[in-house]
């Protein structure tokens, strides 16, 4: 990173800010596409773009571990989302397009506005203290230590939650014996 700083000094620009804007240029249009694209699969792929840009933000902030975890978990996770979307929906959704009824539209609008206001207020609040500490190069070690000392309980709760989710998913996906299903279908 010394070279990076050297370059920054020489060029007399804030390279970090420049990279931040570059990432924003990728992330924000992608986020809009996620919302407005008719094809659910394509929005899934745009979501990967959003998360990729966010991963870049983490890298700027020198949080390597978080950035890589973000990349690894979310790309794979989103691939799964895309696959599930593919299997459960008509992949060529954009050709159909369902009209939304007026009442639904109204309630949707209300919910969206409230949600937006909440997030906006949260972000605008002035309580974002800037830490003057430099990032420790051994931050992975620190994260690891923190997870099994200070934050052991939340960590365990999270893992139990994930385990429960996993079991639930298995139960849902578990195939019932084929012949039973066919019998029921046959009787009806």
């Amino acid at each position: 990173m010394e070279q990076f700083e050297l370059l920054t000094n020489w060029a007399q620009v804030n390279v970090e800010a420049f990279v931040l804007y570059a990432l924003a240029i990728i992330a924000i249009p992608c986020a809009f596409c996620v919302l407005f694209d008719r094809a659910i699969i394509r929005s899934g792929f745009f979501l990967i773009g959003v998360f990729g840009a966010v991963c870049g933000l983490f890298l700027i902030l020198q949080a390597q571990f978080l950035a890589l975890a973000q990349l690894m978990i979310y790309t794979v996770g989103i691939t799964l989302v895309v696959v599930i979307a593919l299997m459960l929906t008509n992949p060529r959704l954009e050709k159909e397009g369902v009209a939304v009824e007026g009442r639904e539209r109204f309630s949707g609008l209300v919910i969206a506005t409230v949600f937006f206001l909440t997030i906006y207020c949260a972000l605008r609040s002035e309580s974002w203290p800037l830490s003057s500490l430099r990032m420790n190069p051994e931050n992975v070690k620190q994260i690891g230590a923190a997870l099994i000392t200070t934050y052991a309980l939340p960590f365990e709760f999270a893992s139990v939650l994930l385990l429960a989710a996993l079991m639930g998913a298995i139960l849902l996906a578990k195939a019932e014996p084929k012949n039973d299903v066919s019998k029921i279908a046959g009787e009806n």
């Binding site: 299997m87 459960l88 008509n90 849902l172 019932e176 039973d180 299903v181 029921i184």
Partner: peptide, 10 residues
């Protein structure tokens, strides 16, 4: 007869 969630794929 058991109630199965219907995961009907295309």
């Amino acid at each position: 007869q058991t109630k199965l969630p219907e995961f009907k794929t295309d």
